[in-house]
Design a protein around this nucleic acid. Structure first.
Lengths: 352, 352
DNA sequence: TGCTAAATGATGCACGTGCCTCATGGCAAC
DNA sequence: GTTGCCATGAGGCACGTGCATCATTTAGCA
């Protein structure tokens, strides 16, 4: 049984303050303040003395008190594509939910809709944001030089900016989303394991192959299939361009022209349209079908055996992770690594 | 493109204070304080007036300021079994990590080791905890009347208490962990889908069937297997009792006496011992193998094709969820529902 | 040595809430 | 009318930090 020595506990419960710091470093509270907040006019060896005291005492700034003093508030904007996509609806729902639940932390979230295919308009929207009432922005938009530049300019103006779900390359660690390559590989892995070692081909349906996300998924999918499931052959990607009529035509053609089809991978986040078309075709019931993202539609499709697995990223986690990261940037902290790695979820009928 | 009217933003960024409340309700700040903190000596209609003002203004108490005023600190104790279990090690690692990262929120976490099979000693340990230095406890222990009672007594003394991973039934919503039944069903689902429709039997290895968790997993497993994979037959559970020699004997026997084995489900959180035994036996390489919990060992086993899938609950998420729930209880708030539902993760070689 | 600028100290208010004390006014029972 | 209780008001201090102002000390330099 663990013992808790009284004094230790008290020490833990009472943390050192800037006053203690000042005393330990042999300076005044004003100088501690200068060092803590990076103001200039302090000699280097004084700075070092204070920093040493911070280490020695294990001082951690009381952010609540600091925020109180600064009347700091956080307002984060989620810049999302305007679209009727079910996955986006889920995202927005979670932003609303998070907005309520982070109210106690003085955080407010808003959604702004952008035209995802017009980098110029996105860039000029971002330019209108004012650091006075906007603390940070999470941006979901396909990669483009304009958007990447706009993000850098935001940061220069003191607004935290974060690519959201859609990756802007060269932002390195600074984004929120999953590894699309691994997600595609997981789809291939599941199709390979689920189909009964039958020789055959796999249909890949996408909304568009122009985005980096789609390309990466496809590469991950192909690589895994070739390497570990050589008996399966992936067909070229069908692109629906979000057009239902076009989807109807190309999917119907593909199914009828490929007699030895064993599986279908729906790569885009809008699984509903392709699935309904496949369902209406009727001849695809015993094919392995894998789609992306948890929505009411895909959940139901899993339950009713119309689909075999869903590769998903948790929309609530994505939203909260973005909020925490934006806040961490503002607070000049580092966020928890392991908490912010968004998992690639595998949803089956039994674990939704 | 979204527009943000100046005034609206300012309104959002500046929240009403108790002063505003007092003015709106036509009472003094002292009375607002009496109502907010549930002190008595206030007439009912006055209470109603204040509550109405809270609604009208959308007042939300500034917890940071309140904590500052109260010098409120949180110290949470995780009461865990003492064991060399890799999963437990992961849990402890995440408690340490969380402890660092929640420091900014004035939260400190400690681990206490309990004797999981001695409800009496657990109960008397819990009784020693002092509300002065312990804000809440997360308890990982098998279900028992003594522990359940001890939990209720803790709550009476003002210490938040929460069953952790191991369920104490009748605590309803108030616990942190996954649905074991669904986890077992998912294991069955995966084995059923992965094996190539071969008739055969499935070995189930457990540490002990005395715990409710194991029973529930087993029930979920059997139900799913019988319902959707009738061609497979689950064998009676092998219990290792944490004894390596015993494990060696019973597993070897089972494998040699069941010629038509197609899969193995390792139900306990300690997958290492059974897996090593199976590996040494050599004749099980092409059986479907499924285990529980992500540990360095299971991760490696996935990567090297020694195991086909892992059913896991994210230890970091479990820990953080427990902390958030305990804090919410202390703050008399309701936690975010969707954030606190721990997912049953399916880990494959491609998405770890 | 004396001058100037840079570095540091001293101090006080503000932030929003909890908690305490003391004063005041009303109302009912005697 | 007096007494005593109850509901409420008024005000102040504390929490830990940010930020501002003004005073004072120290270092650098001629």
């Amino acid at each position: 049984m663990a013992k808790f020595v009284e004094t230790t506990v008290r020490e833990i419960m009472l943390r050192p303050t800037t006053k203690d710091l000042a005393q330990a470093a042999g300076v005044s509270r004003a100088t501690v303040d200068r060092v803590l907040n990076g103001r200039d006019g302090v000699r280097k060896d004084t700075v070092d003395r204070v920093n040493q005291a911070i280490k020695d005492l294990g001082f951690v700034r009381n952010i609540q008190a600091a925020n109180l003093a600064k009347s700091q508030r956080y307002r984060f904007v989620f810049a999302l594509p305007r679209s009727g996509d079910l996955f986006l609806e889920e995202i927005i729902r979670h932003i609303d939910e998070a907005s309520e639940n982070f109210a106690a932390d003085l955080i407010v979230c808003d959604v702004a809709h952008i035209d995802e295919n017009d980098p110029h308009s996105i860039s000029s929207f971002l330019a209108t944001l004012d650091p006075v009432d906007t603390t940070g922005v999470a941006i979901m938009a396909p990669e483009s030089p304009q958007v990447r530049d706009a993000i850098f300019r935001l940061q220069e103006r003191g607004i935290a900016a974060l690519p959201f779900i859609a990756d802007q390359s060269s932002m390195a660690e600074h984004w929120v989303g999953t590894n699309h390559n691994a997600a595609g590989a997981t789809a291939a892995n599941l199709i390979g394991r689920f189909c009964q070692k039958t020789q055959g081909s796999v249909l890949v349906i996408s909304e568009s192959m122009r985005s980096r996300d789609s390309l990466e998924r496809r590469i991950g999918f192909d690589t895994e299939l070739n390497k570990n499931f050589g008996f399966l052959q992936a067909l070229p990607s069908l692109e629906t361009y979000g057009d239902e009529d076009r989807a109807q035509t190309i999917i119907t053609n593909a199914v009828q022209n490929n007699a030895n089809l064993v599986g279908i991978y729906i790569m885009s986040s809008e699984a509903r349209v392709p699935l309904q078309i496949l369902n209406d075709l009727g001849q695809t019931t015993n094919l392995i079908k894998i789609a992306h993202e948890r929505t009411p539609y895909t959940e139901n499709a899993l339950k009713t055996f119309k689909i075999d697995a869903v590769i998903a990223q948790d929309p609530g986690h994505l939203v909260r992770s973005a909020i925490r990261k934006l806040k961490a940037i503002k607070d000049k902290r580092v966020a928890i690594g392991s908490q912010e790695r968004i998992r690639i979820e595998v949803l089956l009928r039994t674990n939704i």
